[in-house]
């Protein structure tokens, strides 16, 4: 019985770590640069589908499924997310902030429609199964494999974390914050604000794409209903509660928020009478929305908040 709990928690931890990586990507956009990406799930989905299309074994009815090695899929997924981000960024980033929000929200909607309808590439509503898991043949026991995969995602998260920490402490990262705080001043100092924003946006989406790729190669399945807008809300909540601008907060709150989400699901299934169970999902969503709005109102810096000093030299 305890083994069961450990096994479930391992599975749970893998999902949390993957969502944490997506949150780190978002943090670069919102926390460091002040870009409102309302379509995270779209970029997460691109990464997921790219991984599936590149690595899954060929099937006659599908255009893709190239059966390439796992790592090629991961890189390809990041490239695809970056390209899509570049397209959206080119059109919207020179404009006012809410346009990016609307455009990213739109892209998530559109990508879901494409995933659902382009049967030949994406498998349509059924999605794609049997997506290879890295080194799966070395493990016979599913539990042992999950432990291995947890290690893999933790390593990926660590790389992303260290990389992003270095980046935001670099001169480039300081420019981002300068733009966020006072764009006019940054421009007056000769910084091309649009270019910096563009780079941050694309880099953030690349990280989100990585998270999507890690997710499908763990679950072994990809389908259009995995990328509903609620995921955008969940990832946003993870960031906001943790404190935008703080990568450690982002990671920690991925854990808290996902535990709250699944925990409340379990709780509802146990204590809410059967007749009202159908409203359980609504209660969960309201909970997420409340956490978002209340944090914005009363704790805008999040639980941990941003570290004030970013330059090593300024200490």
């Amino acid at each position: 019985m305890t083994l069961g709990i450990v096994s479930y928690l391992t599975f749970f931890a893998v999902v949390v770590t993957i969502l944490g990586i997506a949150t780190l990507g978002l943090n670069l956009q919102w926390g460091s640069t002040g870009l409102f990406n309302a379509g995270i799930v779209g970029f997460y989905g691109i990464g997921a589908y790219a991984q599936a299309i590149l690595t899954a074994a060929p099937r006659p009815e599908l255009l893709g499924n190239f059966g390439l090695p796992w790592i090629v899929g991961i890189v390809g997924a990041m490239v695809c997310s970056a390209l899509m981000a570049a397209l959206v960024g080119l059109v919207t980033l020179r404009l006012r902030g809410d346009y990016l929000a609307i455009a990213t929200f739109g892209i998530a909607t559109v990508l879901q429609v494409i995933a659902l309808n382009w049967d030949g590439l994406t498998g349509g509503s059924l999605g794609m199964t049997s997506i290879p898991r890295p080194l799966a043949s070395l493990f016979s026991d599913p539990f042992a494999y999950n432990v291995f995969y947890l290690g893999l995602t933790l390593a990926a998260a660590a790389i992303v974390y260290v990389g992003l920490e270095r980046i935001i402490r670099s001169p480039w990262g300081r420019v981002l914050k300068a733009i966020r705080e006072d764009e006019t001043a940054a421009i007056a100092l000769g910084k091309n604000a649009a270019r910096f924003r563009f780079e941050a946006f694309v880099l953030g989406c690349t990280v989100t794409g990585l998270a999507g790729a890690l997710y499908v190669s763990f679950i072994g399945f990809v389908g259009p209903f995995d990328f509903l807008p609620i995921i955008t809300f969940q990832i946003w909540t993870m960031l906001i509660v943790g404190g935008s601008g703080n990568n450690r907060g982002a990671l920690l709150c991925s854990l808290i928020v996902w535990a709250l989400w699944t925990g409340s699901g379990t709780l509802i299934s146990r204590i809410v009478p059967a007749a009202y169970q159908t409203q359980g999902g609504a209660i969960q969503s309201i909970l997420i929305g409340l956490v978002l709005v209340l944090t914005l109102m009363f704790k805008p810096r999040g639980l941990i908040g941003e570290e004030p000093v970013v330059s090593r030299h300024a200490r």
Partner: peptide, 8 residues
């Protein structure tokens, strides 16, 4: 348990 129509 409710799957909310979502595979995840």
């Amino acid at each position: 348990r409710d799957d909310q129509g979502q595979p995840t």
